[in-house]
Design a protein around this nucleic acid. Structure first.
Lengths: 343, 343
DNA sequence: TTGTAGGCGTTATCAA
DNA sequence: TTGATAACGCCTACAA
């Protein structure tokens, strides 16, 4: 009556012990055939162990494995908003890379809150992930010292950090935002545009700043000038609200440039609500080339950014020891109906 | 010379031992103040421990914690494609719920491959997550027995599974696809439409089947008939390609219903390429109400599905023991420009 | 080739 | 209230 429960009514998943017992071998042998690197197990034993594992539905306890090995098979990804197609596609690339490398992916959402960002990195650290990938747009300046501290603690404990976009101090993979902005500016100037309104994120957000800087340069040397830089954010609603206020006084022949396609979508919606017709009496351009930009009517002129590839590269880069600084991914302008040739 | 390395040049993150030593207390005490539930530690000791932890940048090793406690603070999410806004929004809801509950979220991508699905559940099991949430559209029938086996092994080991959508055997949260389809059908019939072409997924995919069944019922009792059901899939390209082949012979006054908004976007693109104008000489409707449907021109008539809420509820439901079967979330028809009143 | 045993970082039981 | 100490599930010298 006081015997241990036989079989595995014991609750919880079967352990390596269970498998070993079932197969009639030692723990070590079972470990070797199931999870070990050593090939040195007699076929007969090997088979018995495999059969037992199969029959019990055994799966190695990764937590136990991690504590024993001293390293986990996890990578962590931090994104601002997983519902945003921008981050969704990056995440897809990261996930693909993780899968290829046989790693689990844990994900955390910052909701664009720098406070949360630091907190989440700390929480993530608890998993002792092989690497963490930061895809939440960080600010320069500011008191993101907490973040830096957490990151420092993590890296000095052997962790590897890769930032997507301009990485303040960490390894990073990024796209050539300045170059993309410049190319977009040049292309629009070439189409005949001379005046632009930019709907951007707050000053200090590198991605935004770089795109503006590039655009300003390219547009300027083509003879155009930026009338105004509206400070909004990266969301559809931010773009919408920023433009709603000024829609009426936008002159024909002006191009409104969203800092991202998502923003540009909001811009177009706001313009339409005010009776303007994008691609007709006002031009609109974006940045990123999310799928929607292709399907919308008129098509949105934008700068194609290989987001999935970006995520994939970040993951790969995070797994290698020597920081071979990849060249930033090149981007290219995609002209569509939202910016018809002028005149 | 043979002493243990002093301080913490030891590599790796600081351990609870390090903290305890630094604070001059026992391991047990340090554990109690940092991770334990027990309030019973003298303030003086408590402070010393907290200071030491802070100074060392200590974070509990979740793996070790999990093996010791016998349970992890992880939930796993399985989605078909994280770049798809449909799954992205669900994931956002799940992530929010996980965050609220203080759980880490690990995510895996099935790429719509049933084979992978089973394999991934098995891999996920290794984490011994508190619960796993399935958002990859499962097929009925078919040899998804492997999946069922894995799921069985997981649940019988104490795990909890929640399926989003029709859950074959598992607990599930879902939307009323039949009701939504019915309402959409009725609304279109009321607008004067009498003929419809449905672009759906393969037969056997419950979400698709339910939506079609509901639509057929609602549209039929309004006097309409379904001319044809095209078998495509859930992607934009599937919708595009399916319709591209038949675009020319679609008569005016016909409404093309995509099984999801993403599909409907592809449908509209294909129609345009063939010289048709959605919302003018052909009507289009979708299902889900993703943000794009609102911003596109003409707006896409669709059935609003609260995806984020769905993910959130799935997470919550997965954490509670007694299966209080929530009523399926109600959905509602949103009429937009893509289906103008006929005649 | 196989098994024994000690260790990984925590938790939790039980004395003190 | 505090501190040894035995688990937890697994890996890996080391010995057999």
């Amino acid at each position: 009556m006081s015997e241990a429960t036989p079989g595995r009514a014991r609750s919880g998943a079967p352990t390596l012990q269970d498998v070993a017992r079932e197969a009639g071998v030692s723990l070590a042998t079972a470990s070797r055939v199931l999870n070990g690197t050593a090939r040195r197990v007699a076929p007969a034993f090997r088979e018995k162990v495999e059969a037992a594992a199969e029959q019990l539905g055994y799966t190695a306890n990764l937590s136990a494995q991690a504590t024993a090995r001293g390293s986990s098979a996890i990578v962590a990804l931090l994104v601002a908003d997983i519902a945003d197609p921008y981050f969704g596609r990056i995440a897809a690339g990261v996930a693909r890379g993780a899968d290829e490398a046989g790693l689990m992916l844990t994900i955390a959402i910052t909701e664009r809150d720098p406070q949360r960002e630091a907190k989440l990195v700390r929480a993530l650290r608890g998993q002792r992930p092989r690497s963490v990938i930061l895809a939440a747009s960080r600010t320069t300046g500011r008191a993101n010292e907490e973040l830096v501290t957490e990151l420092g603690a993590y890296t000095s404990a052997g962790g590897s950090v890769v930032t997507i976009g301009p990485g303040g101090g960490t390894r990073s993979v990024g796209v050539d935002n300045v170059g993309g902005g410049r190319a977009l500016g040049a292309a629009l100037a070439e189409l005949g545009y001379r005046r632009a309104i930019v709907v951007a994120a707050a000053e200090g957000v590198r991605t935004s700043d770089d795109r503006i800087a590039g655009f300003s340069e390219g547009f300027g040397s083509g003879g155009g000038t930026i009338d105004e830089v509206l400070r909004a954010g990266f969301s559809r609603d931010a773009g919408h609200d920023a433009v709603a206020a000024v829609a009426e006084r936008i002159e024909a022949g002006t191009v409104v440039v969203g800092i991202s396609d998502v923003v540009a979508m909001g811009v177009m919606a706001a313009l339409r609500e005010r009776g303007r017709t994008p691609g007709d009496d006002v031009a609109v351009a974006g940045f990123d080339d999310i799928p929607t930009s292709h399907d919308t009517v008129p098509g949105l002129t934008t700068v194609h950014v290989p987001l999935e590839e970006l995520g994939y590269r970040a993951l790969r880069s995070s797994l290698v020891v020597d920081a071979v600084a990849d060249a930033p991914l090149t981007v290219e302008v995609v002209l569509r109906g939202s910016t018809p040739r002028l005149g």
